[in-house]
Amino acid sequence: MKLATLNNLTRDGQLIVVNRAGTQAVKVPHIAQTMQQALDNWENVAPQLNTVYEHLNQGGLNDAFDLDLDQVIAPLPRAYQFLDGSAYLAHVERVRRARGADMPPSFKVDPLMYQAVSDGFLSHNQDVEVVSEEYGIDFEAEAAVITTDVPMNASVAEAGQCIQLICILNDVSLRNLIPAELAKGFGFLQSKPRTALSPFFVTPDELGSAWRDHKIHLPMRTWLNGEWFGEPDCGVDMQFDFAELVAHAAKTRPLAAGAIIGSGTIANHDMAKGSTCLAEKRVLEVIADGKAKTPFMQFGDDVKIEITDENDHNIFGTIHQKVVKY
């Protein structure tokens, strides 16, 4: 099943069911007005939404309309919680190595995770507004899952059953603000502005065999200013799967329906796969040549992120954003 949110000039938009091709949609106010409303009552709502989805794909709905992606906002325009992990240790190891630090053994058994901005998400094609280029503007191509209610101290198996939807995202980072913030010992704040979500949320079955072991086994493709930047496989070198990340987040507190759990920057040990953020490319340049050559994003630069399957089907839709001066 594929879902999106239509801009109706309200904060939370209007939930729509989208066909598999991402070309047509139908409004479903009789089932749920918003994505959050659907997630709040997912057990009852999901079967009804799926029936609509099946009819839509069969061309059997008179109220279906052609979908204009410019009218689509973030599927969940605001969430009660967004927790972002760092499950790809190839990325963590390289970043630490560049500054002469080893990766602690605990990182292999205890996921890194922080509480990110959730009171608003950028749409898939919305400009990234930044005050200054001196902040070190970077993109981060990630995947994420959206849960129903997760009980406190849920087991990994229980956490996996709470995963209902999947998306990709651009987790914008302001790299030059990070060191001073981390030095305070309280984590990210000013260095992590709003994140962009893909236009579509999909249920795990939409990925077919590419969704297994609570991982996405497909490449995350990224282009910077129209040039190929990287395509590491999301299912390779992921130290902690999504069920483990959700269980980690819920260890001491329950998670409310609509919680978004991010994977962290996608990275493979195979450097030929490229990168999904500028910081990692710069790190690899430091490791190889002693200094970074690639600049961070400048005003006017754009990034494109998507995942396609073996049939070239664009599962989540494309994130394509430009950086502009605020």
Rank of each mutant, 00 (worst) to 15 (best):
residue 169 L to F: 04
residue 256 A to Y: 08
residue 209 S to E: 14
residue 234 C to H: 04
residue 268 N to G: 05
residue 224 L to P: 03
residue 246 V to M: 06
residue 176 N to K: 14
residue 203 T to V: 04
residue 207 L to M: 03
residue 227 E to L: 07
residue 258 G to M: 09
residue 261 I to M: 07
residue 207 L to K: 01
residue 188 F to Y: 15
residue 222 T to R: 02
residue 229 F to L: 06
residue 255 L to M: 07
residue 211 W to T: 02
residue 175 R to D: 08
residue 228 W to S: 07
residue 181 E to I: 10
residue 249 A to Q: 08
residue 191 S to M: 08
residue 185 G to M: 11
residue 201 F to S: 01
residue 268 N to P: 11
residue 212 R to V: 08
residue 269 H to L: 06
residue 202 V to C: 05
residue 197 L to Y: 14
residue 225 N to P: 06
residue 221 R to K: 15
residue 238 M to N: 03
residue 178 I to S: 01
residue 217 H to K: 04
residue 221 R to M: 09
residue 210 A to G: 02
residue 212 R to C: 12
residue 254 P to N: 13
residue 182 L to E: 10
residue 226 G to C: 12
residue 250 A to Q: 04
residue 214 H to S: 14
residue 176 N to C: 08
residue 211 W to C: 01
residue 250 A to P: 06
residue 226 G to D: 14
residue 185 G to P: 03
residue 225 N to E: 07
residue 177 L to T: 05
residue 232 P to D: 11
residue 248 H to Y: 15
residue 199 P to H: 11
residue 190 Q to N: 14
residue 208 G to Q: 09
residue 173 S to D: 01
residue 232 P to F: 09
residue 170 N to L: 10
residue 199 P to G: 05
residue 209 S to P: 00
residue 250 A to S: 15
residue 262 G to T: 12
residue 196 A to M: 11
residue 235 G to Q: 12
residue 187 G to Q: 05
residue 201 F to I: 01
residue 224 L to D: 03
residue 265 T to I: 14
residue 241 D to T: 07
residue 259 A to D: 06
residue 171 D to W: 00
residue 189 L to T: 13
residue 225 N to K: 09
residue 195 T to D: 09
residue 223 W to D: 12
residue 180 A to Q: 15
residue 262 G to D: 07
residue 196 A to I: 07
residue 212 R to L: 06
residue 254 P to V: 01
residue 197 L to G: 05
residue 215 K to N: 09
residue 263 S to L: 08
residue 227 E to Q: 15
residue 252 T to P: 02
residue 197 L to H: 13
residue 269 H to V: 05
residue 178 I to V: 15
residue 264 G to N: 10
residue 239 Q to C: 13
residue 218 L to G: 02
residue 210 A to L: 01
residue 208 G to W: 05
residue 188 F to W: 12
residue 191 S to E: 13
residue 220 M to D: 00
residue 190 Q to C: 06
residue 229 F to K: 01
residue 184 K to C: 11
residue 178 I to P: 10
residue 224 L to T: 08
residue 228 W to C: 07
residue 199 P to R: 06
residue 218 L to D: 04
residue 198 S to F: 03
residue 170 N to K: 12
residue 207 L to T: 02
residue 213 D to I: 06
residue 196 A to P: 12
residue 257 A to N: 11
residue 197 L to Q: 14
residue 206 E to V: 14
residue 213 D to T: 12
residue 249 A to P: 12
residue 215 K to P: 00
residue 268 N to D: 15
residue 268 N to S: 14
residue 180 A to Y: 10
residue 246 V to Y: 00
residue 195 T to A: 07
residue 197 L to V: 13
